[in-house]
Amino acid sequence: MIIVFFVLAFVAVGCAISMLITRNAIYSALFLVLNFATVAILYLILGAPFIALSQITVYAGSVIVLFLFVVMLLGAERLPGGEPLRWQRFIAMALGLVLAVNLGLAITQQAGDLGMLAAPEKGFGAPVEVGRVLFSQYVLPVQIVAFILLVAVVGAVVLSRSEEISHRRELYRKPEAKE
């Protein structure tokens, strides 16, 4: 199991880095899909098939498809090469070094309890359990998220049709102006 974990971790990190490096937006999106898929398999290993398949359906299946759709529709495959903010790079390097040192320290000092987790009991994270918790303990957050999503959907519709709406208003206004 630990070998599978390391292979998957390696692939996931590799995909994430390639996604950042590659200069083609389509390949970037596809590396992100691969990353999501490997993370989903990690969830499967941890005994959470529901979360794993939700991850694939929502992120790999819907979000990135829309990304691809927009990239292809706009013909924006080639990303611009140069970095407009040159000084950012040096700060990023320094901060990255700090982060690496920090991580290294954390691992060397606390590596003692980096063991395998025991597999959760059967039925943990099953759809029934997830549903029960979502609609009893976390019912308020679920409602709030649903409301925010609704606002976003209405906003998208209004934004995409704003021209048409203003055009229609003018059509109705014109006869009044003549009188």
Partner: peptide, 25 residues
């Protein structure tokens, strides 16, 4: 017989869009 069978079908069908999109592009 997984307890997320239908979700599996949803996941796989949502992935199957990629082939066609990429072939076109």
């Amino acid at each position: 017989d997984v307890n997320v069978g239908l979700l599996y079908i949803m996941a796989v069908t949502s992935i199957s869009v990629y082939g066609i999109t990429l072939a076109g592009w």
